[in-house]
Design a protein around this nucleic acid. Structure first.
Length: 396
DNA sequence: TCTGGGGTCCTAGGACCC
DNA sequence: TCTGGGGTCCTAGGACCC
Protein backbone atom coordinates (compact mmCIF):
# COMPACT_ATOMS: atom_id res chain seq x y z
CA UNK A 1 0.00 0.00 0.00
CA UNK A 2 1.45 3.33 -1.02
CA UNK A 3 0.85 6.47 1.00
CA UNK A 4 -0.94 9.36 -0.67
CA UNK A 5 1.43 12.08 -1.86
CA UNK A 6 0.35 15.29 -3.53
CA UNK A 7 2.50 18.04 -4.95
CA UNK A 8 1.27 21.58 -5.54
CA UNK A 9 3.04 23.87 -7.97
CA UNK A 10 2.52 27.62 -7.77
CA UNK A 11 4.34 30.03 -10.05
CA UNK A 12 5.72 33.04 -8.24
CA UNK A 13 4.35 36.47 -9.18
CA UNK A 14 3.55 34.80 -12.47
CA UNK A 15 2.58 37.62 -14.87
CA UNK A 16 5.28 39.94 -13.55
CA UNK A 17 7.92 37.20 -13.70
CA UNK A 18 7.06 36.44 -17.32
CA UNK A 19 7.47 40.14 -18.16
CA UNK A 20 10.81 40.28 -16.36
CA UNK A 21 11.93 37.20 -18.20
CA UNK A 22 10.85 38.53 -21.61
CA UNK A 23 12.42 41.94 -20.94
CA UNK A 24 15.61 41.32 -18.95
CA UNK A 25 16.12 45.05 -18.36
CA UNK A 26 13.09 44.87 -16.02
CA UNK A 27 14.75 42.40 -13.65
CA UNK A 28 15.29 43.81 -10.19
CA UNK A 29 12.76 46.57 -10.83
CA UNK A 30 9.24 47.00 -9.43
CA UNK A 31 7.00 45.63 -12.19
CA UNK A 32 3.24 46.06 -11.91
CA UNK A 33 0.96 44.23 -14.36
CA UNK A 34 -2.64 45.40 -14.60
CA UNK A 35 -4.79 48.37 -15.55
CA UNK A 36 -3.22 51.60 -16.81
CA UNK A 37 -2.50 54.15 -14.10
CA UNK A 38 -5.02 56.97 -14.28
CA UNK A 39 -7.80 54.57 -15.27
CA UNK A 40 -10.26 52.32 -13.48
CA UNK A 41 -8.78 48.94 -12.63
CA UNK A 42 -6.54 47.01 -10.31
CA UNK A 43 -3.15 45.34 -10.05
CA UNK A 44 -3.30 41.84 -11.56
CA UNK A 45 0.18 40.85 -10.42
CA UNK A 46 3.36 42.53 -9.29
CA UNK A 47 7.01 41.60 -8.81
CA UNK A 48 8.55 41.07 -5.40
CA UNK A 49 10.40 44.36 -5.86
CA UNK A 50 7.01 46.10 -6.15
CA UNK A 51 5.69 44.33 -3.06
CA UNK A 52 8.33 46.11 -1.02
CA UNK A 53 6.37 49.31 -1.67
CA UNK A 54 3.25 47.74 -0.21
CA UNK A 55 1.73 46.91 -3.58
CA UNK A 56 -0.24 43.68 -3.92
CA UNK A 57 -2.60 42.15 -6.44
CA UNK A 58 -6.21 43.40 -6.47
CA UNK A 59 -5.06 46.81 -5.22
CA UNK A 60 -6.52 49.74 -7.20
CA UNK A 61 -3.98 50.69 -9.82
CA UNK A 62 -4.01 54.37 -8.86
CA UNK A 63 -3.21 53.53 -5.28
CA UNK A 64 -0.28 51.44 -6.48
CA UNK A 65 0.90 54.34 -8.60
CA UNK A 66 0.89 56.69 -5.63
CA UNK A 67 2.94 54.18 -3.63
CA UNK A 68 5.46 53.65 -6.42
CA UNK A 69 5.35 56.17 -9.28
CA UNK A 70 8.75 55.00 -10.52
CA UNK A 71 7.42 51.46 -11.05
CA UNK A 72 7.11 49.84 -14.47
CA UNK A 73 3.39 49.57 -15.31
CA UNK A 74 2.50 46.98 -17.94
CA UNK A 75 -0.76 45.75 -19.47
CA UNK A 76 -1.87 42.14 -19.01
CA UNK A 77 -0.69 39.91 -21.89
CA UNK A 78 -2.87 36.90 -21.21
CA UNK A 79 -2.02 35.10 -24.45
CA UNK A 80 1.66 35.15 -23.55
CA UNK A 81 1.03 33.91 -20.00
CA UNK A 82 -1.09 31.06 -21.31
CA UNK A 83 1.73 30.15 -23.68
CA UNK A 84 4.27 29.94 -20.84
CA UNK A 85 1.71 28.14 -18.67
CA UNK A 86 1.15 25.48 -21.34
CA UNK A 87 4.88 24.85 -21.52
CA UNK A 88 5.18 24.39 -17.77
CA UNK A 89 2.08 22.18 -17.59
CA UNK A 90 3.35 19.90 -20.32
CA UNK A 91 6.64 19.58 -18.47
CA UNK A 92 4.73 18.65 -15.31
CA UNK A 93 2.86 15.98 -17.23
CA UNK A 94 6.14 14.09 -17.51
CA UNK A 95 5.72 13.21 -13.84
CA UNK A 96 2.10 12.14 -13.76
CA UNK A 97 -0.69 11.68 -16.27
CA UNK A 98 -3.19 12.89 -13.67
CA UNK A 99 -2.09 16.51 -13.59
CA UNK A 100 -4.86 18.74 -12.25
CA UNK A 101 -4.51 22.29 -13.50
CA UNK A 102 -6.29 24.76 -11.21
CA UNK A 103 -5.55 28.02 -13.00
CA UNK A 104 -3.01 29.54 -15.34
CA UNK A 105 -0.31 29.41 -12.66
CA UNK A 106 -1.24 26.50 -10.40
CA UNK A 107 -1.51 22.71 -10.56
CA UNK A 108 -1.69 19.58 -8.44
CA UNK A 109 0.26 16.40 -9.15
CA UNK A 110 -0.76 13.11 -7.58
CA UNK A 111 2.53 11.38 -6.79
CA UNK A 112 1.01 8.53 -4.81
CA UNK A 113 2.74 5.26 -5.62
CA UNK A 114 5.48 6.85 -7.73
CA UNK A 115 8.36 6.56 -5.24
CA UNK A 116 9.94 3.51 -6.84
CA UNK A 117 9.69 5.07 -10.26
CA UNK A 118 10.53 8.71 -9.55
CA UNK A 119 12.32 8.65 -6.20
CA UNK A 120 11.38 10.44 -2.98
CA UNK A 121 8.85 13.29 -3.33
CA UNK A 122 11.32 15.96 -2.22
CA UNK A 123 13.73 15.13 -5.00
CA UNK A 124 10.85 15.13 -7.49
CA UNK A 125 10.05 18.62 -6.22
CA UNK A 126 13.60 19.91 -6.70
CA UNK A 127 13.79 18.27 -10.09
CA UNK A 128 10.60 20.04 -11.20
CA UNK A 129 11.87 23.39 -9.92
CA UNK A 130 15.18 22.96 -11.74
CA UNK A 131 13.56 21.94 -15.02
CA UNK A 132 11.04 24.80 -14.95
CA UNK A 133 13.84 27.26 -14.32
CA UNK A 134 16.00 25.84 -17.11
CA UNK A 135 13.13 25.70 -19.55
CA UNK A 136 11.37 29.00 -18.84
CA UNK A 137 13.65 30.95 -16.52
CA UNK A 138 10.86 31.18 -13.95
CA UNK A 139 10.87 30.39 -10.25
CA UNK A 140 8.07 28.30 -8.78
CA UNK A 141 7.09 27.25 -5.29
CA UNK A 142 6.36 23.63 -4.51
CA UNK A 143 4.42 22.15 -1.61
CA UNK A 144 4.25 18.42 -0.86
CA UNK A 145 1.90 16.71 1.58
CA UNK A 146 -0.47 13.81 2.10
CA UNK A 147 -3.41 15.72 0.63
CA UNK A 148 -4.06 18.52 -1.84
CA UNK A 149 -5.23 21.04 0.70
CA UNK A 150 -2.02 20.82 2.72
CA UNK A 151 0.18 20.70 -0.37
CA UNK A 152 -1.35 24.02 -1.38
CA UNK A 153 -0.81 25.56 2.05
CA UNK A 154 2.77 24.29 1.96
CA UNK A 155 3.60 25.91 -1.38
CA UNK A 156 2.12 29.15 -0.05
CA UNK A 157 4.22 29.02 3.10
CA UNK A 158 7.58 28.90 1.42
CA UNK A 159 7.41 31.61 -1.23
CA UNK A 160 9.14 32.62 -3.42
CA UNK A 161 11.21 29.83 -4.96
CA UNK A 162 10.22 27.49 -2.14
CA UNK A 163 10.08 23.76 -1.56
CA UNK A 164 8.26 22.63 1.55
CA UNK A 165 7.43 19.04 2.49
CA UNK A 166 4.98 18.24 5.27
CA UNK A 167 6.07 14.81 6.52
CA UNK A 168 3.36 12.21 7.17
CA UNK A 169 2.06 12.59 10.70
CA UNK A 170 2.93 16.30 10.88
CA UNK A 171 -0.28 17.52 9.24
CA UNK A 172 -2.18 18.73 12.28
CA UNK A 173 0.89 20.30 13.83
CA UNK A 174 1.68 22.19 10.64
CA UNK A 175 -1.80 23.71 10.35
CA UNK A 176 -1.82 24.47 14.06
CA UNK A 177 1.10 26.85 13.63
CA UNK A 178 -0.52 28.87 10.83
CA UNK A 179 -2.48 32.08 11.30
CA UNK A 180 -6.22 31.56 10.81
CA UNK A 181 -6.21 33.92 7.83
CA UNK A 182 -3.76 31.80 5.87
CA UNK A 183 -6.21 28.90 5.69
CA UNK A 184 -7.43 28.66 2.12
CA UNK A 185 -11.15 29.46 2.08
CA UNK A 186 -11.01 31.77 5.08
CA UNK A 187 -11.31 35.28 3.71
CA UNK A 188 -11.92 38.66 5.29
CA UNK A 189 -15.58 38.12 6.18
CA UNK A 190 -15.14 34.62 7.52
CA UNK A 191 -12.19 35.76 9.63
CA UNK A 192 -14.21 38.62 11.12
CA UNK A 193 -17.12 36.25 11.76
CA UNK A 194 -14.81 33.78 13.53
CA UNK A 195 -13.33 36.59 15.60
CA UNK A 196 -16.77 37.60 16.90
CA UNK A 197 -16.98 34.12 18.44
CA UNK A 198 -13.62 34.62 20.10
CA UNK A 199 -11.91 32.35 17.59
CA UNK A 200 -8.62 33.94 16.57
CA UNK A 201 -6.33 30.92 16.13
CA UNK A 202 -6.45 27.56 14.40
CA UNK A 203 -6.11 25.83 17.78
CA UNK A 204 -9.13 27.69 19.16
CA UNK A 205 -11.13 26.67 16.09
CA UNK A 206 -10.34 23.03 16.88
CA UNK A 207 -12.24 23.28 20.15
CA UNK A 208 -15.55 23.46 18.27
CA UNK A 209 -17.57 20.51 17.01
CA UNK A 210 -19.38 20.46 13.68
CA UNK A 211 -22.82 20.93 15.30
CA UNK A 212 -21.50 23.92 17.23
CA UNK A 213 -20.14 25.53 14.08
CA UNK A 214 -23.24 24.75 12.03
CA UNK A 215 -25.47 27.39 13.61
CA UNK A 216 -23.30 30.44 13.06
CA UNK A 217 -21.57 29.37 9.82
CA UNK A 218 -23.98 27.04 8.02
CA UNK A 219 -23.74 23.33 7.33
CA UNK A 220 -21.16 23.39 4.55
CA UNK A 221 -18.83 25.91 6.20
CA UNK A 222 -19.04 23.99 9.50
CA UNK A 223 -17.74 20.80 7.94
CA UNK A 224 -15.19 22.73 5.93
CA UNK A 225 -13.77 24.57 8.95
CA UNK A 226 -13.77 21.45 11.10
CA UNK A 227 -11.70 19.59 8.50
CA UNK A 228 -9.17 22.21 7.47
CA UNK A 229 -8.13 23.30 10.96
CA UNK A 230 -7.07 19.67 11.52
CA UNK A 231 -5.20 19.37 8.26
CA UNK A 232 -7.88 17.13 6.76
CA UNK A 233 -8.67 17.67 3.10
CA UNK A 234 -12.12 19.29 2.77
CA UNK A 235 -12.45 17.71 -0.68
CA UNK A 236 -13.20 20.43 -3.20
CA UNK A 237 -10.99 21.17 -6.19
CA UNK A 238 -13.68 20.77 -8.79
CA UNK A 239 -13.56 17.03 -9.18
CA UNK A 240 -16.42 15.54 -11.12
CA UNK A 241 -17.76 18.85 -12.31
CA UNK A 242 -20.61 18.44 -14.77
CA UNK A 243 -21.41 22.04 -15.54
CA UNK A 244 -19.89 25.44 -15.33
CA UNK A 245 -20.49 29.00 -16.42
CA UNK A 246 -19.29 31.44 -19.05
CA UNK A 247 -19.53 35.18 -18.66
CA UNK A 248 -18.19 38.52 -19.73
CA UNK A 249 -18.43 41.96 -18.19
CA UNK A 250 -17.02 45.40 -18.64
CA UNK A 251 -16.47 48.36 -16.37
CA UNK A 252 -16.97 51.71 -18.07
CA UNK A 253 -14.30 54.35 -17.81
CA UNK A 254 -17.12 56.68 -16.72
CA UNK A 255 -20.51 55.60 -15.42
CA UNK A 256 -23.13 55.33 -18.14
CA UNK A 257 -26.87 55.96 -18.59
CA UNK A 258 -26.92 56.06 -22.38
CA UNK A 259 -28.88 52.96 -23.52
CA UNK A 260 -26.80 52.67 -26.69
CA UNK A 261 -23.59 52.36 -24.72
CA UNK A 262 -25.21 49.71 -22.52
CA UNK A 263 -26.53 47.84 -25.57
CA UNK A 264 -23.11 47.88 -27.14
CA UNK A 265 -21.49 46.42 -24.03
CA UNK A 266 -24.19 43.76 -23.70
CA UNK A 267 -23.97 42.77 -27.35
CA UNK A 268 -20.23 42.59 -27.14
CA UNK A 269 -20.22 40.32 -24.10
CA UNK A 270 -23.08 38.23 -25.54
CA UNK A 271 -20.96 37.56 -28.62
CA UNK A 272 -17.96 36.63 -26.51
CA UNK A 273 -20.08 34.13 -24.55
CA UNK A 274 -21.64 32.61 -27.65
CA UNK A 275 -18.26 32.30 -29.29
CA UNK A 276 -16.86 30.47 -26.29
CA UNK A 277 -19.76 28.07 -25.86
CA UNK A 278 -19.65 27.16 -29.56
CA UNK A 279 -15.91 26.73 -29.37
CA UNK A 280 -16.12 24.27 -26.49
CA UNK A 281 -19.14 22.57 -28.07
CA UNK A 282 -21.36 22.96 -25.04
CA UNK A 283 -24.90 24.19 -24.50
CA UNK A 284 -26.84 26.12 -21.86
CA UNK A 285 -30.37 27.31 -21.13
CA UNK A 286 -29.77 29.98 -18.49
CA UNK A 287 -28.83 33.56 -19.34
CA UNK A 288 -27.50 35.90 -16.66
CA UNK A 289 -27.25 39.66 -16.47
CA UNK A 290 -24.98 41.50 -14.08
CA UNK A 291 -24.86 45.23 -13.56
CA UNK A 292 -23.32 47.50 -10.97
CA UNK A 293 -24.35 51.03 -10.07
CA UNK A 294 -22.06 53.94 -9.29
CA UNK A 295 -22.33 53.21 -5.55
CA UNK A 296 -21.18 49.61 -6.20
CA UNK A 297 -24.59 48.07 -5.57
CA UNK A 298 -24.53 44.98 -7.79
CA UNK A 299 -27.44 43.06 -9.26
CA UNK A 300 -27.37 39.63 -10.84
CA UNK A 301 -30.45 38.35 -12.60
CA UNK A 302 -30.97 35.16 -14.50
CA UNK A 303 -33.57 33.56 -16.68
CA UNK A 304 -33.82 29.92 -17.64
CA UNK A 305 -35.27 29.36 -21.11
CA UNK A 306 -37.24 26.34 -22.26
CA UNK A 307 -34.61 25.64 -24.90
CA UNK A 308 -30.87 25.92 -25.38
CA UNK A 309 -29.47 29.35 -26.11
CA UNK A 310 -28.93 29.47 -29.85
CA UNK A 311 -27.43 32.85 -30.71
CA UNK A 312 -25.67 35.87 -29.30
CA UNK A 313 -28.69 37.94 -30.20
CA UNK A 314 -30.82 35.72 -28.02
CA UNK A 315 -28.45 36.14 -25.08
CA UNK A 316 -28.52 39.87 -25.68
CA UNK A 317 -32.33 40.03 -25.89
CA UNK A 318 -32.82 38.11 -22.64
CA UNK A 319 -30.19 40.17 -20.84
CA UNK A 320 -31.78 43.40 -22.07
CA UNK A 321 -35.16 42.20 -20.80
CA UNK A 322 -33.69 41.50 -17.38
CA UNK A 323 -32.06 44.92 -17.33
CA UNK A 324 -35.37 46.61 -18.10
CA UNK A 325 -37.00 44.74 -15.24
CA UNK A 326 -34.52 45.89 -12.65
CA UNK A 327 -32.90 49.14 -13.75
CA UNK A 328 -34.67 52.48 -13.31
CA UNK A 329 -33.03 53.93 -16.45
CA UNK A 330 -31.77 56.98 -14.54
CA UNK A 331 -29.11 55.67 -12.14
CA UNK A 332 -25.69 55.63 -13.80
CA UNK A 333 -24.22 52.18 -14.39
CA UNK A 334 -20.59 51.38 -13.70
CA UNK A 335 -20.36 47.81 -14.96
CA UNK A 336 -22.49 45.61 -17.14
CA UNK A 337 -22.18 42.12 -18.58
CA UNK A 338 -23.99 38.90 -19.34
CA UNK A 339 -23.29 35.21 -19.22
CA UNK A 340 -24.48 31.63 -19.36
CA UNK A 341 -24.80 29.24 -16.44
CA UNK A 342 -25.54 25.53 -16.21
CA UNK A 343 -23.28 25.02 -19.18
CA UNK A 344 -23.11 21.34 -20.12
CA UNK A 345 -20.84 19.56 -22.54
CA UNK A 346 -22.28 18.25 -25.79
CA UNK A 347 -23.93 19.88 -28.74
CA UNK A 348 -27.32 20.02 -27.02
CA UNK A 349 -30.15 21.59 -28.98
CA UNK A 350 -28.20 23.49 -31.58
CA UNK A 351 -29.50 21.34 -34.43
CA UNK A 352 -30.77 23.74 -37.08
CA UNK A 353 -34.02 21.83 -37.68
CA UNK A 354 -35.21 22.83 -34.23
CA UNK A 355 -35.32 26.50 -35.20
CA UNK A 356 -37.42 28.61 -37.42
CA UNK A 357 -35.74 29.94 -40.49
CA UNK A 358 -34.94 33.39 -39.10
CA UNK A 359 -33.15 31.96 -36.10
CA UNK A 360 -31.47 29.43 -38.32
CA UNK A 361 -30.16 32.12 -40.63
CA UNK A 362 -28.94 34.20 -37.72
CA UNK A 363 -27.19 31.16 -36.33
CA UNK A 364 -25.45 30.49 -39.61
CA UNK A 365 -24.26 34.07 -39.86
CA UNK A 366 -22.91 33.89 -36.34
CA UNK A 367 -21.18 30.58 -36.92
CA UNK A 368 -19.49 32.03 -39.97
CA UNK A 369 -18.39 35.08 -38.01
CA UNK A 370 -16.99 32.87 -35.28
CA UNK A 371 -15.06 30.81 -37.79
CA UNK A 372 -13.41 33.99 -39.06
CA UNK A 373 -12.77 35.25 -35.56
CA UNK A 374 -11.15 31.97 -34.69
CA UNK A 375 -8.81 32.45 -37.61
CA UNK A 376 -7.83 35.79 -36.11
CA UNK A 377 -9.46 38.04 -38.66
CA UNK A 378 -11.22 40.03 -35.96
CA UNK A 379 -14.53 40.24 -37.81
CA UNK A 380 -17.49 41.52 -35.87
CA UNK A 381 -21.07 41.92 -36.89
CA UNK A 382 -21.79 45.16 -38.69
CA UNK A 383 -24.16 46.28 -35.97
CA UNK A 384 -21.40 46.18 -33.40
CA UNK A 385 -18.99 48.04 -35.63
CA UNK A 386 -21.53 50.72 -36.50
CA UNK A 387 -22.30 51.30 -32.88
CA UNK A 388 -18.70 51.40 -31.90
CA UNK A 389 -18.18 54.35 -34.22
CA UNK A 390 -20.65 56.34 -32.19
CA UNK A 391 -19.00 55.50 -28.88
CA UNK A 392 -19.37 58.18 -26.27
CA UNK A 393 -21.26 57.60 -23.11
CA UNK A 394 -23.49 60.11 -21.45
CA UNK A 395 -21.59 60.43 -18.24
CA UNK A 396 -22.13 63.59 -16.24
C1' DT B 1 -7.25 54.34 -1.87
C1' DC B 2 -12.41 54.13 -4.67
C1' DT B 3 -12.87 49.17 -5.56
C1' DG B 4 -11.08 44.28 -12.69
C1' DG B 5 -12.61 40.16 -14.66
C1' DG B 6 -13.19 35.39 -14.64
C1' DG B 7 -14.76 31.80 -12.06
C1' DT B 8 -16.60 28.35 -7.97
C1' DC B 9 -19.71 26.98 -4.28
C1' DC B 10 -23.34 27.87 -0.74
C1' DT B 11 -27.76 29.68 1.23
C1' DA B 12 -32.46 30.92 1.61
C1' DG B 13 -36.85 31.46 -0.11
C1' DG B 14 -40.55 30.54 -3.42
C1' DA B 15 -43.01 27.67 -6.89
C1' DC B 16 -44.64 23.43 -8.00
C1' DC B 17 -45.57 18.49 -7.79
C1' DC B 18 -46.64 14.16 -5.51
C1' DT C 1 -61.90 24.32 7.82
C1' DC C 2 -57.41 23.38 8.65
C1' DT C 3 -53.40 21.00 7.85
C1' DG C 4 -48.67 17.61 6.06
C1' DG C 5 -43.85 16.73 4.24
C1' DG C 6 -40.38 15.75 0.78
C1' DG C 7 -38.14 16.63 -3.48
C1' DT C 8 -36.71 19.42 -7.25
C1' DC C 9 -36.03 23.44 -9.84
C1' DC C 10 -35.30 28.27 -10.04
C1' DT C 11 -33.68 32.87 -8.45
C1' DA C 12 -30.84 36.50 -6.01
C1' DG C 13 -27.15 37.38 -3.39
C1' DG C 14 -22.81 36.59 -0.94
C1' DA C 15 -18.11 34.76 0.12
C1' DC C 16 -14.03 33.35 -1.70
C1' DC C 17 -10.15 32.48 -4.99
C1' DC C 18 -6.72 33.52 -8.85
Amino acid sequence: MSEPVFLHVDMDAFYASVEQHDQPQLRGRPVIVGARPGHRGVVSACSYEARRYGIHSAMPINQAYRLCPQGVYLPVRMTRYHEVSRRIMSLLRDYTPTLQQMSVDEAFLDLSGTRRLLGPPRSVGSDIKRRVREDTGLAISVGIAANRYLAKLASDEDKPDGLLVIPPGEEAAFVGRLPLASLWGVGRKMLAHLNTFGITTVLQLREYSIPELRGPFGAAAAEYLYAVCRGIDPGLYGEGRTSHSISGEQTFEHDVINPDALDRALLDTAHTCMFRILEEESHAQTVTLKFRLADFTTFTLRRTLDHDVSSADEIYRVARLLLNEKWDHTTPIRLIGCGLTNVHAGAGGLQPDLFDSADERRQKVEQAVYQLRRKGLGVKKARLIDQRKSTGDQSP
